[in-house]
Nucleic acid binder design. Structure first.
Lengths: 217, 217
DNA sequence: TAGTGGTCTAGACCACGGT
DNA sequence: CCGTGGTCTAGACCACTAG
């Protein structure tokens, strides 16, 4: 496993092809992914450069919180995964087949250092994930757990973003004034398991840590 | 120019290859772009389906306002493009070479129907875009104008999203109460013209029209 | 089984950057 | 000039969906 410091040039695409005995197509597909995720920048005629990582929470189009942010991130469970009823006011209403299955819910509070910055609620069908309870999260990441323990990958995500005033609960949790502006992000994650969609509701205090996003067109 | 209604299946990838005398690689690259932009959904073993368009402002990872939203979108110029000084508090500080060139600025207010929903400010170097003044915008789209009139394309964008309280100016423009929560999106667009970056600041009233986003991993 | 999308190999030509 | 990334052709095998 090679390591390349930020700003340095990676081996050329042709070189990578030779090293790993793969073709340009495959090499470029992998590199393009790194570019989309913001890890690598390409410079035509020069090479591919490792990008300086941004400090802001690289959420949005990126997978999970714990992968997106570097160090100093802590997570506290407000409610561990448990069976419940499907709520009424879910963003991106679930499909009928899902509503016929039991609903698993969990709720977490995410910190950067000592500051709570995000309140996260998650709902999903318990059917494809039988026996999912307790905090058996790998590295604190729900998505990593899905991937490694259940071989389920996120395929697409749909998001909706609003600004709103913190209500009683959110102001208490995020340690901010009631009515302070916060970000509400509603997400529907689709997964490689057709019966499994994950519905997430995020409330973010963006005062100190804005949400970041990088995109290559 | 064929048209396919929402929900219908497109011709298969192999079929498109035959029709246009191109290879799978090329076909798939084009389709993947449509998938990333949220226009098409692929279903393995079945085909590629035209996606039902979302109502929310499909901004973020999508190009411009006027392409993103369907009908009923109007735009009013608060300040037409004109020369000015580079501001101090720009998001994603410009590079030294840019600061040595004159700065062009324009400011618009965007409506859906009769509701102002977004206040937009844009700064960029006047050097690569000599003679850019007046409202010579194609279809009201700055990016379409760049593309068609100057052959300049957006290559990457970096965004930062915050929630904040509307100040006097924003509350006046967006016709909302002072202190109401609004979305602030700071963007740096890089373009195919190396000397041209576009710095944009968006303030959105997300009460009625949230910001949308679709992503394929 | 036939057709679909997902992935890959092999190899070509081009425009761009630095020497 | 050579090496880089950008794009493309040609063709293969696979897993999945549906009749």
């Amino acid at each position: 496993m090679e390591r390349y410091p930020a700003g340095s040039l990676l081996p050329s695409e042709h070189e990578i092809c030779r090293q790993y005995r793969i073709t340009r197509t495959t090499t470029r597909k992998a590199l393009d992914e790194l570019v989309r995720e913001g890890f690598v920048k390409k410079e035509q005629g020069r090479g591919s450069r490792v990008v300086e990582r941004r400090k802001s929470l690289g959420l949005l189009t990126v997978k999970g919180f714990s992968e997106a942010v570097g160090k100093g991130v802590r997570t506290r469970f407000l409610r561990q995964p448990h069976l419940t009823e499907w709520p009424e006011d879910l963003p991106f209403s679930p499909e009928a087949v899902e509503l016929d299955t039991p609903c698993i819910f969990f709720e977490r509070l995410r910190y950067v250092g000592d500051n709570p910055v995000m309140h996260e609620s998650n709902w999903f069908s318990g059917k494809p994930l039988k026996g999912f309870t307790g905090i058996d999260f790998i590295d604190g990441s729900f998505f990593k757990t899905l991937s490694q323990r259940y071989l389920i990958e996120i395929t697409t995500s749909e998001q909706e973003i609003r600004a709103l005033a913190a209500d009683d609960r959110r102001s208490l949790l995020l340690n901010i004034q009631k009515g302070a502006p916060i970000l509400k992000i509603s997400i529907r994650f689709s997964t490689s398991e057709p019966l499994l969609n994950i519905y997430s509701l995020l409330y973010c205090d963006t005062e100190k840590y804005p949400i970041g996003n990088y995109y290559k067109h």
